Simulated scan of single mutants.
Amino acid sequence: MLFVTRHFIATVLAPVLLFAVAIPSAQAQDVPPIRVGTVKMALQPINPAKSFVGRVEAREHVDIRARVTGFLEEVLFKDGQVVKEGDLLYRIEKAPFESALSRAKGALDQARGQSAFADEQLARATELMKTQAVSAAVRDQRLAEQLTAQGNVQIAEANVQNSGIELDYTEIKSPISGLIGRTVVTKGNVVGPDHGVLTTIVSRDPMYVTIPVSQREFLSLKSSDRGAVRDLLTAAIQFSDGSSYDHPGKIDFVDVSVNRATDSVTVRAVVPNPDGRLIDGQLVKVSLAIEQPVEKILVPKSALIADQQGIYVFVVDGDKASVRRLKVAGQSGTSAIVESGLSADDQVIVEGMAALRPGATVSAYPAATPAKAG
């Protein structure tokens, strides 16, 4: 009986055990592939950038001074406001200059009257000399008097012109458009050419950024044509808080000589400043692409994974996820520059990596944001 029971148990349990062993295998075969987004790698031209410290400078910088001496009647702007070329900034008391202009005009009329009289006297002496009624000496004296009178007219005309200019100088106007600084004088003070700068105006769009580039870095350019150098160089600006400026700069000037004190060449970029974020005198970090473009593989930084062994990415190998160890050399925009570890046409996984494991079966689709050169 015992033998029958054991045989019966063995006979019954054997298919059950076989079924139990078969279940995991069937379940493993039924696991669906992981959906992943991929980017196809390709060689892209990039300019390796190097960082320098640059200084922002206004293209136009004007110190406003009084050109005549007088009492200041009005200050017609607010500190820090935007002004346009021709805007009235200060008004100096006009009355003394209007009086001086009137005197100058009176003196001119007087000189013209004397000149007309001298012309008549010379003409009369010339006619009388023909009949020998007057001597040549008298005629010569009348000629000298005429020339003197004509000279006095010219002097009087110049005085009128100068008085008019000085009267115009009582209204101090902005010679450029830009931001005006703080006024150092107020209404009621005496101002004049010897009283220094009244305020300062700086233009604000576009701005210059001057960058001292070491001679060693400058020589890395593979062109002796200065025009070509300007075409090659581009400037990306970053503020002291680490934020990036939206508008890239265009190099417009490379100095003709090396600064002996610093052994550097001054490079200047013109940068748009429509929002006024760049301020005259500001220090910024400037990334210059100073080498010829080279072709490199760029991989989105979102695809990079780091562990104790370094940096790696997942790639699609057939229908499996495979690990590729990378050596990177900096960044270009939102992508990392790959020195080794990837080849053109590799499909790098950039989406769906949360549950991904090496060797996992995957189903790939093109990701929406391919890597681009920055």
Rank of each mutant, 00 (worst) to 15 (best):
R91V: 05
I155D: 05
F239I: 07
R59D: 07
P48N: 12
A58Y: 00
V258Q: 05
I290N: 00
F19P: 02
G352V: 14
L108E: 13
E157D: 08
D280E: 07
V190P: 01
T369V: 15
A269N: 11
S135P: 02
T262D: 13
Q215D: 09
D319C: 02
E171Q: 10
I23V: 14
P300I: 15
S257L: 07
V153S: 02
A118F: 05
E339K: 13
L326T: 09
V75E: 01
T369Y: 08
E157F: 00
D241H: 05
V134Q: 07
V338F: 06
V75L: 07
A14P: 04
L101A: 10
G374S: 03
T266H: 03
H7P: 00
D319M: 07
I251F: 00
A149H: 06
A289G: 15
A306R: 13
R182D: 08
F117Y: 11
K40H: 04
L101H: 05
P96N: 08
L278T: 11
P212Q: 04
T131D: 14
A133D: 11
V31L: 13
E85Y: 02
G164Q: 14
I290Y: 00
A20P: 01
R142Q: 15
E85N: 11
V83Q: 00
I46E: 02
V134L: 07
K250N: 09
E291Q: 10
Q161P: 00
Y312N: 03
I279P: 00
Q161F: 02
S223N: 01
G281K: 11
Q308A: 15
V213I: 12
D109A: 12
E157R: 09
T262H: 08
Q121F: 06
G242K: 04
A118K: 00
G318H: 06
R204V: 01
D275P: 00
V56R: 02
V350S: 08
F52L: 09
A95T: 15
S343C: 06
N152Q: 14
G151I: 02
V12A: 14
P48E: 11
E98R: 12
L122A: 10
P193S: 04
Y245H: 13
F117T: 14
L101V: 01
R67A: 00
R103T: 11
D246V: 11
L288V: 13
M353K: 04
P300R: 03
D255T: 07
D194G: 06
A10S: 13
E171C: 01
A367G: 14
L298W: 03
L147G: 03
P248F: 06
L326F: 09
A123G: 01
D346F: 12
V338Y: 04
G192A: 06
T69E: 14
K320I: 01
V267T: 05
A14Y: 08
Q29T: 09
E98N: 06
K50I: 09
V271W: 02
I176S: 05
S135E: 06
Q121Y: 07
S177A: 15
D252C: 03
A303L: 08
V270D: 06
K327N: 03
D241Y: 05
V75D: 01
E85G: 08
